[in-house]
């Protein structure tokens, strides 16, 4: 999953390697984001009549925002955060509890909550960098946080309602509880995350990300402060996760530990990201869309769902270790190349 694993044909010639965003290609990237946004904006015309289906679509966008944040942390800087659900849960519970208990307006608590997630995300990165933990140890330490957070939610019944969860009142008298508007709110969030992702990767931070992901030691030697950029990625990604989680709490009006567990959030987010393509801009959104749709199609076979997920996971990782977008892009490039060579 590092750059040098990619086939040479993909990296060569007129097409910049994936993940690189040159000025010319960034115009194309923004067009692609706009096209994706437009396509997603039309979804309510299709299913807007059904409250259940709109709920599914909103969850899909929630997972798209999780996957974008995860892409920033894992895809851009090689930090395996297995605490996607926990960081989102920190945001959701913090915002819900502060706004409902203390009567603070919820837009403010959402910002506070994402600040907390940002701090925790940054702290993970700081620890990982300080103790030079590899991918696996970073994964294990964040996984222990996920599990501890889950236990904390279950244990602190007075505050979190334990296993049954809590009803979130803040936001209940706004348009966030209507059928269609929250969809657009989440769509805007996803688009902001995508544009933020691209802008970040166009800036000097993006250059540093690419350098340290491709070769950490070389990056350090060229004067890039690897620690600082890792912490940037962890903190920004953590904040994005916390904000998405908090928004979800106020839209859904109910949160429980099950909404943020490792199995229900981290694993799907990882699958969506890898399916779409780690390090690609639209990969997370494509992955989230495909898996949300598949999940809805397979919903009637709920008993076999876990088995299907497992098989899918294995097949995906064996067949497309670089993601579907890249696999398809690669085919196109090869076609073009062979056509040029033919005459």
């Amino acid at each position: 999953m590092t750059a040098d694993e990619r086939p040479v044909s993909e990296q060569s010639a007129n097409h910049p390697p994936p993940g690189t965003i040159s000025r010319e290609s960034s115009r194309r990237t923004f067009l692609a984001i706009a096209a994706a946004g437009l396509a997603l904006a039309l979804v309510p015309i299709w299913i807007g009549g059904s409250r259940t289906l709109m709920g599914v679509a909103i969850t899909g966008l929630l997972f798209a925002s999780y996957a974008i944040a995860f892409n920033l942390i894992f895809g851009s800087t090689n930090q395996l955060f297995l605490a996607v659900g926990a960081l989102a849960g920190v945001g959701a519970y913090t915002s819900a509890i502060i706004s409902d208990r203390l009567g603070v307006p919820f837009p403010l608590t959402m910002v506070l909550a994402s600040g907390l997630s940002m701090f925790i995300g940054g702290a993970f990165s700081w620890i990982a960098v300080r103790r030079s933990l590899g991918i696996i140890f970073t994964g294990i330490i964040t996984l222990t946080f996920s599990l501890a957070f889950d236990n904390l939610l279950l244990g602190q019944r007075g505050l979190t309602g334990g296993e049954t969860g809590i009803v979130v009142d803040a936001g209940s008298d706004t348009f966030l509880r209507n059928q269609i508007p929250p969809y657009y709110v989440f769509l805007i969030l996803v688009l902001i995350y995508l544009i933020g992702y691209v802008l970040l990767h166009r800036s000097h931070i993006g250059w540093a990300f690419r350098a340290l992901r491709d070769d950490e030691i070389a990056a350090e030697l060229t004067g890039i402060n690897v620690a600082r950029y890792r912490i940037y990625a962890g903190a920004i990604g953590g904040g994005m996760l916390g904000f998405a989680g908090a928004l979800w709490a106020h839209v859904e009006g109910f949160i429980s530990p099950a909404t943020f567990t490792f199995v229900h959030v981290d694993v799907p987010a990882l699958v969506m990201l890898v399916f779409g393509g780690i390090g690609t801009v639209l990969g997370p959104v494509v992955g989230a869309a495909v898996f949300t749709y598949l999940g809805e199609v397979l919903a009637s076979y709920s008993q076999l769902r876990l088995i299907a997920d497992g098989i899918l996971l294995i097949v995906l990782f064996l067949a497309f270790p670089q993601g579907v977008i890249r696999a398809l892009g690669l085919r196109l490039n090869q076609l073009r190349a062979s056509r040029k060579a033919a005459p």
Binding site: V274, Q303, L318
Partner: peptide, 25 residues
């Protein structure tokens, strides 16, 4: 190295799902 650990981890999560799903079923 790390690529090996990572891929094995992802694939065996899939296996765990299949076994769990089968047992629950």
């Amino acid at each position: 190295d790390e690529d090996r650990v990572l891929l094995s981890l992802l694939l065996t999560i899939g296996v765990a799902f299949i076994i769990d799903g089968f047992l629950v079923w």
